[in-house]
Design a protein around this nucleic acid. Structure first.
Lengths: 190, 190
DNA sequence: TCATTAAATGAATAAATATTCATTTAAATT
DNA sequence: AATTTAAATGAATATTTATTCATTTAATGA
């Protein structure tokens, strides 16, 4: 018997991301995804039940991917600021290197494809970061502000740096990264 | 002769925004917009040539609306920090009170509807803010960092505060607003 | 009041898009 | 090499959605 080409799923995912980046979630069609992936339209339906399943499945893969990367090399025993810098910079770098995934996730968030439950799983992704922030407050290193707003502050800066790096075609040197981190740190430090 | 109901255009805009908030740009159809606006599908085509024209036209209205509000009550002769707080808080408040517009604009940005030129008009909107930032640097009140990244920092925080206020159904009290401003200010101050 | 004119309607049609399926292809097993 | 099995194909079909248009409605001015 003929086995599945296990590369194909990733090929389809990549094609979908590319299409979403170019035309938005509103712009993708099953034919355009198939064309981009160099496969027949019907083949999509061997790997995914329908369009919704494809999008949803890709969404979950993207969420999973991010979560892992954010905490790469994270050592909970390292000093607070070291850990904080690591995670902050992981987030910035991942959002830049996986920018199409980020856009895709953002667009999914307000779409008929993602339901309320799916939305909630996103929250769990940030639990280790929440714990780190709490630790920073306990150690009196950062401001005694509701963790919710401290994280809002972080995520906001991270997102916008990534967006602008891509849209305005900037090269994010270590110097620029550190300058941006400095603003962020000064914002939250006690 | 029967005159046009001049309220109708706004009615259509509001219906479109409501639909986009609920289902994303990928989820709207001319029939769903018409239903939401309590008019017949055909009536949409009296006011707009086609779907693309409707979306594009609404996009321009939204951009125009934001630009004005951000600089409401702005007095260039006021002290820097006063002006800065005013504009920052105008931005936060406008993004919250016009959240559907914000989502819509964000989604349009990556869609087949908006072209490169249209995208550029967004940049002009922030020119007065750029000038204020430059003044702050000249007065040595804020860090000597590329205005581009200072603005990225601001916009990032503003966007995320607005998003979270809405998504997590928070009440943005003056106290919380000021706490958030403090982080932002500490981040950019010299 | 009546005639005129354009708005408004919504069913009908056109166009775009998702999905299916009969057929072909190719890997694996005998 | 022949057989089996599922993948792959892409044209055909089903479905959804955009757009049109013959008809009705209502505001205006003669």
């Amino acid at each position: 018997m003929k086995p599945r080409d296990e590369n194909k799923i990733d090929q389809i995912y990549q094609a979908t991301l590319k299409q979403v980046k170019a035309n938005g979630l509103a712009g993708i069609t099953m034919q355009s995804v198939a064309r981009e992936a160099n496969i027949a339209t019907g083949t999509l339906y061997i790997y995914f039940k329908n369009k919704e399943a494809l999008i949803l499945s890709l969404y979950h893969v993207c969420v999973k991917n991010s979560a892992g990367v954010y905490f790469k090399n994270y050592d909970p025993k390292a000093p607070f600021k070291v850990s904080f810098y690591l995670i902050w910079s992981n987030m910035v770098q991942h959002r830049i290197s996986s920018f199409t995934e980020s856009i895709f996730m953002e667009q999914c968030y307000h779409s008929p494809f993602i339901d309320e439950d799916t939305r909630k799983t996103l929250k769990k992704m940030f639990e280790p970061l929440m714990n780190l922030i709490k630790r920073g407050k306990e150690e009196r290193l950062i401001k005694d502000i509701d963790t919710f707003w401290l994280i809002a502050f972080l995520i906001g800066t991270v997102n916008e740096i990534a967006k602008r790096t891509i849209y305005f075609n900037k090269k994010l040197t270590t110097e620029i990264l550190n300058t941006n981190f400095q603003m962020c740190w000064d914002g939250i430090k006690a």
